[in-house]
């Protein structure tokens, strides 16, 4: 993968609002652990970025099982932000990723605005973090998460609070579970967001007709996978027309054609999520295919086609 970015005329690098990526293919938070879990399958330093599992201030045990269920062309998850807390992330996981020269984007979640700010402050000055993704859209936790992502005033406030505590680029991950995504995106931009990550999972559920109960112990879960791609494309298209900051696009990407669709509706870079479960080498495969696409189309940079399908 690394050799690809060294190609003669083609420049795969992406500046995602100050997050410097060697190439445009990242892996999404919650689907790739802390990177190490996938080291046997893929060169994690060659990825555009590894967005690590969502980190909270204190450790969280997560939701009771069942936590996941496959649905038509997708899956529901209600993990509940299980994670060891920010201190363990900083002391045990981050140094390894730094040593391996992995481009790390930390993903943080809090119960309150103050908690988001405290985690951001804790990450300030830590070696090896390229940017912060704000999880304001997790549908699976009782407090925090989604409630921040659905109210434009809260979105603006939480972005502002985090910006005040960090020198790193800040990228809120927007929830699709809203009536007006543009309003939320503009609020994030107004709060000082450097980039936007779109989209998180769509809230859904499944029922076990045998037991006559919801499948997930949490009842509701986040839908991801190819099933949500059209929704993600539509939302990025709408937001791209209205904002000035770059967008990291994802939602059901399974191949380079999917990735190109996201780029053409305005994504400056893409993230692979559920696809990693299907093929742990998917991000690398997609990057290679994007490179060949650029060669074939005599392109020097993906910027030439970012948003090209959008009628401004």
């Amino acid at each position: 993968m690394k050799n690809i970015s060294a190609g003669q005329d083609i420049d795969l690098r992406v500046n995602l609002g100050g997050i410097l990526m060697n190439n445009p293919v990242a892996v999404a938070s919650g689907t790739f652990g802390y990177g190490r879990e996938y080291e046997d399958y893929i060169d994690i330093a060659g990825l555009g970025a590894v967005i690590v599992k969502g980190t909270t201030l204190e450790p969280r045990h997560g939701n009771p099982p069942p936590r996941i269920i496959e649905t038509a062309a997708g899956m529901l998850n209600a993990i509940g932000l299980e994670n060891p807390g920010v201190d363990v992330f900083v002391n045990q996981y981050l140094p390894y990723l730094f040593e391996k020269k992995v481009t790390v984007i930390a993903n943080i979640a809090g119960n309150t605005i103050e908690e988001y700010a405290t985690i951001a402050a804790r990450l300030e000055g830590c070696q090896g973090i390229a940017g912060i993704e704000l999880n304001i859209s997790c549908p699976n936790v009782k407090q925090g998460g989604l409630q921040f992502g659905t109210d434009p005033v809260m979105v603006k406030n939480v972005v502002q609070a985090v910006k005040a505590e960090t020198s790193l680029p800040v990228m809120p991950k927007l929830s699709p579970n809203v009536t007006n995504i543009v309003e939320i995106a503009l609020a994030a931009q107004e709060g000082g967001a450097d980039a936007l990550s779109m989209i998180n999972t769509l809230m859904g559920m499944a029922v076990d007709v045998r037991t006559r109960k919801p499948v997930l112990a949490n009842i509701f879960g986040g839908l991801s996978g190819p099933a949500i791609k059209p929704v993600a494309l539509r939302m990025i298209y709408q937001v791209y027309r209205e904002v000035d900051i770059p967008i990291l696009g994802g939602g059901g990407i399974m191949n380079a054609t999917d990735a190109l669709e996201f780029i053409m509706v305005g994504a400056a870079a893409v993230s692979i999520g559920t696809g990693n479960f299907v093929n742990p080498q998917m991000a690398g495969d997609i990057l290679a295919e994007l490179y060949y696409y650029m060669q074939e189309n005599d392109m020097k940079s993906l910027n030439e086609i970012v948003g090209i399908a959008v009628q401004k």
Partner: peptide
């Protein structure tokens, strides 16, 4: 039920003992 199979997604959680806090 599993998604990733490698310990990344935390989907196949199981409380081994009722008294356990972690999965």
């Amino acid at each position: 039920h599993m998604a990733c199979g490698v310990g990344a997604c935390l989907g196949c959680a199981r409380r081994l003992k009722a008294s356990d806090e972690t999965y």
